[in-house]
């Protein structure tokens, strides 16, 4: 501590410490702990808060599993379904994203000339200068019943009537995949780029096919980048709100939409908190799972 002060001077040191403490305590620890606490409390009108009824309870978590007391069903099929659907779709989108981004990242890192690869990076980044909501609406226009794609397909006579991409959730999958593409490409790119190109040539020289070179050399080398990209994309996809609101079919609910409803429309912050904690838990479980599957440490993922 003394060393830190001597090295940076009193002014900068104090600023650093205040900034870091503020960030950790006020922006991360207190809100999370508050939300955790709130999730175990009944939803009371402001006047009753802190009174004798304000006790810790599992009511919101029970509600998530069993539904309301007045319901006929033994379980809360709707919310559990949405939760499960969000989880599986997020995994699907993550895998789709990985399959889509791996060739691009490999091309940029090992095949393209530095100039081409810089150009590619720029053209990947520029669309993300536009707000996520606007990008989602743009995709909605492209995928709409009378949208660009349908017009082209019908116009060329490939199909007779337009396909309902939105009802089939194709628009949603595309939107979610596209929304976080950079967070997959860059960790992959960094990981693949650090691979010694001679290893690729050595494998080829020893008779390896392209597929096997990737399977045995590139992917094992890039696994930390793959795990990193997958966890980020999964978390952000599972936690996305704008894209599902704009692009999901009327029958598809995203779990974040439920959370939003509890907080904003039903004014039930406790239940919203409980649902948020559930989403957080599943995300953390997913990260741990990825670390187990790819046999990487947390330090490698966040690198």
């Amino acid at each position: 501590m003394n060393y830190f002060f001597n090295k940076n001077g009193p002014l900068i040191s104090t600023y650093f410490i205040i900034a870091i403490v503020f960030w950790l305590v006020f922006l991360i620890i207190i809100p999370q702990l508050y939300m955790l606490d709130l999730s175990f409390r009944p939803n009371l009108p402001p006047l009753l808060r802190g009174g004798p009824d304000d006790v810790h309870t599992l009511e919101h978590y029970k509600y998530f599993i069993f539904g309301s007391a007045t319901s006929e069903d033994p379980y809360n099929y709707v919310d559990l379904g949405v939760f499960f659907n969000t989880f599986t779709t997020a995994i699907f989108v993550t895998i789709l994203n990985l399959c889509f981004c791996y060739p691009i990242a490999f091309f940029m890192a090992k095949v393209a000339t530095p100039k081409t690869s810089r150009l590619l990076i720029v053209s990947l980044i520029i669309p993300f200068w536009i707000n996520e909501l606007l990008r989602s609406f743009a995709l909605r226009i492209i995928f709409a019943g009378e949208g660009v794609i349908n017009n082209i397909l019908v116009g060329t006579g490939l199909i007779d009537t337009g396909i309902n991409f939105i009802a089939a959730d194709i628009a949603l999958y595309t939107g979610l995949t596209y929304a976080y593409i950079l967070l997959m490409i860059f960790p992959l790119y960094n990981a693949i780029e650090s691979l010694d190109t001679n290893q690729l040539e050595a494998a080829k020289d020893l008779g390896s096919s392209t597929f096997r070179t990737h399977w045995r050399i590139v992917i094992p080398h890039a696994k930390a980048g793959i795990a990193s990209g997958c966890t980020m994309v999964f978390m952000l996809t599972a936690g996305a709100l704008a894209t599902p609101v704009v692009l999901s079919s009327p029958n598809t609910y995203w779990f974040t939409q439920l959370i939003y409803q509890w907080f904003n429309m039903n004014d039930n912050w406790s239940r919203g908190s409980a649902y948020s904690i559930l989403l957080l838990t599943i995300s953390v479980i997913f990260v741990l799972l990825m670390m187990r599957i790819f046999k990487v440490k947390i330090g490698e993922i966040v690198r």
Binding site: N198, A202, D205, L206, G207, P220
Partner: peptide
């Protein structure tokens, strides 16, 4: 004829051994 089909083997300057195997 590609490098994987030629009856040659190359030893690289930095050896290019596969570190994970």
């Amino acid at each position: 004829i590609g490098p994987n089909k030629r009856p040659t083997s190359l030893i690289f300057q930095n050896l290019a051994l596969f570190p994970l195997m």
